[in-house]
Amino acid sequence: MTDEDISSLDIQWIESTFDEKEKGSYLFRDHAPAHLSYESQALLEKKGMEQIFIPKGLTGRYQPLDFGLNYPFKCYLKKSYHEWRDKCTEITKKGYLKKPSRQEFLYFVSEAWSKIKTSTVENSFVAASILP
């Protein structure tokens, strides 16, 4: 995937996620090339949003997902997958274990996210020094 493709995905994400009701909002971002593109910046400005870039090398400290959500979410996701794997021992024609379908994978993600407590999200923003 090229930088142009990634930038295009970022623009699609912004368009589908935010509307003009977000005016006066802030979007915290890292220094990924797609986030730095002129097109992304212009689109966010059009929607009345301001990007705030987390200093390089500090995303692990200031990004709430990195700081407090990724670990428990991934643990729940792995648990869902392993429970599925214990029940599904189907073999493909070539003798490999069957992979989960997209729908099954979406179920793993949905189930994992449903186990994340609101307080965990809030505490992640506090720990990342975004909320008091």
Rank of each mutant, 00 (worst) to 15 (best):
E4R: 15
E4P: 07
E4L: 12
E4K: 15
D5H: 15
D5F: 15
I6C: 07
I6Y: 06
S7V: 10
S7T: 13
S8C: 15
S8L: 13
L9M: 15
L9D: 13
L9I: 13
L9H: 13
I11K: 03
I11D: 01
Q12I: 10
Q12V: 12
W13P: 05
I14F: 00
S16I: 04
S16N: 12
S16Y: 06
S16G: 08
T17Q: 09
T17L: 07
T17I: 10
F18N: 04
F18S: 04
F18E: 01
E20I: 06
E20M: 07
E20C: 10
E20L: 09
K21G: 10
E22W: 08
E22C: 09
G24Y: 06
G24A: 05
G24L: 05
S25Y: 07
Y26E: 13
Y26S: 12
Y26L: 10
F28W: 08
R29N: 02
R29S: 02
R29K: 06
R29G: 00
D30S: 02
D30G: 03
H31E: 09
A32N: 06
P33M: 10
A34W: 01
H35F: 09
L36N: 03
Y38G: 10
E39N: 13
E39C: 08
S40E: 01
Q41V: 07
Q41H: 10
Q41G: 05
Q41N: 13
A42Y: 12
A42M: 14
A42V: 13
L43H: 00
L43N: 01
L44V: 02
E45R: 13
E45L: 13
E45G: 11
E45H: 13
E45S: 15
K46Q: 14
K46H: 14
K46V: 11
K46L: 14
K47F: 11
K47P: 02
G48N: 08
G48H: 03
E50W: 09
E50I: 15
E50H: 13
Q51P: 03
I52S: 07
I52A: 08
I52W: 09
I52F: 11
I52G: 08
F53C: 08
I54D: 01
P55R: 03
K56H: 06
K56D: 05
G57A: 07
L58T: 14
L58H: 09
T59W: 00
G60S: 09
G60H: 04
G60L: 05
G60F: 02
Y62Q: 03
Y62S: 04
Q63N: 11
P64F: 01
P64V: 04
L65P: 07
D66K: 01
D66W: 00
D66P: 00
D66H: 00
F67P: 01
F67I: 02
L69K: 04
L69I: 10
L69F: 02
Y71L: 08
Y71F: 07
Y71A: 11
P72T: 09
P72K: 04
F73T: 02
K74V: 04
K74A: 08
C75S: 14
C75T: 11
K78P: 01
K78R: 14
K78V: 08
